[in-house]
């Protein structure tokens, strides 16, 4: 790698910080203000989705045997946690290509828009989740986490997982467009396979054995465990596996960004 030095009087950290700040402001504006009623949809979309899912489940009935957890809060925590991971992954896909004009400024690196988008997405999702919790409390549903500290911790953990996946998809999806298509296809099955809508408890053991490779299940179960005292997590849920997976994805994503920095800029 050719060495390039430039002494502009700012440390690399200062440069990166100002890039993050500038990028965060622009992303925040384009996320919330650019679309018509961007704010409205940000809150209404998950709300509508939750309502539809609850309605469908109400019809289908059965399988509501969730130990120590009410069904609707159970589903809301699952959906919110899942969206957090999924959005982190999906936002990464377009992050590099939609900001490619900005690589004209050498301070801006391809990893910056991915990290900034993830941070912004996480903040927005946290905000929406809080609105849901407050809304549910006002409606008399017990949505308040029984262990708030643990709930926050697992919420942040899911955020980290989303970021790791986003880092990987941003590189892979930009360099190989087919990967982006496949990731978009994975979206829907992942929603069901992660135990967001249907509890996976009743599935046969041999199916679960495979499903439990999916780290999102672990994260969601642990999040629910912190929300509902005495909640029966799926057998085999492991915080260690979840964190191992998360740290590996983050490191792999960062390594890919270092390795493919130039190809990403050239895209």
């Amino acid at each position: 790698m050719p060495k390039q030095t430039h002494t502009s009087g700012r440390t690399p950290w200062q440069v990166t910080r100002s890039v993050w700040y500038a990028m965060f402001m622009r992303e925040a504006i384009s996320r919330t203000m650019a679309d018509r009623m961007g704010w409205f949809w940000m809150i209404f979309e998950p709300l509508a989705f939750t309502a539809i899912m609850v309605g469908i489940r109400g019809f289908i009935r059965g399988g509501n045997l969730i130990v120590n957890a009410e069904f609707i809060p159970w589903m809301i925590t699952g959906l919110m946690g899942f969206f957090l991971v999924r959005e982190g992954m999906m936002r990464g896909l377009g992050a590099v290509s939609s900001n490619s004009a900005l690589f004209a400024y050498r301070q801006v690196q391809p990893v910056d828009p991915v990290l900034v988008r993830n941070a912004l997405e996480g903040l927005l999702r946290t905000f929406v989740f809080m609105i849901f919790i407050v809304g549910a409390l006002l409606l008399g549903t017990n949505m308040f986490p029984d262990s708030a500290i643990r709930a926050m911790f697992w919420w942040l953990s899911l955020w980290c997982l989303g970021m790791g996946l986003g880092l990987i998809t941003s590189v892979a999806g930009t360099l190989v467009p087919e990967v982006a298509t496949i990731i978009r296809m994975l979206n829907m099955p992942l929603l069901i396979l992660s135990g967001v809508i249907f509890p996976l408890n009743q599935l046969p053991h041999w199916v679960l054995e495979y499903l439990m490779y999916n780290p999102i299940i672990h994260g969601l179960e642990l999040l629910r465990g912190s929300f509902f005292e005495g909640y029966q997590m799926i057998h085999g849920t492991s915080a260690g596996y979840f964190w191992l997976f998360t740290l590996i994805t983050i490191s792999l994503g960062l390594i890919m960004h270092v390795r493919f920095k130039e190809s990403l800029k050239a895209q």
Partner: peptide, 8 residues
């Protein structure tokens, strides 16, 4: 605005 912020 963006460029002004990036430049420091």
């Amino acid at each position: 605005k963006f460029v002004a912020r990036v430049q420091g």
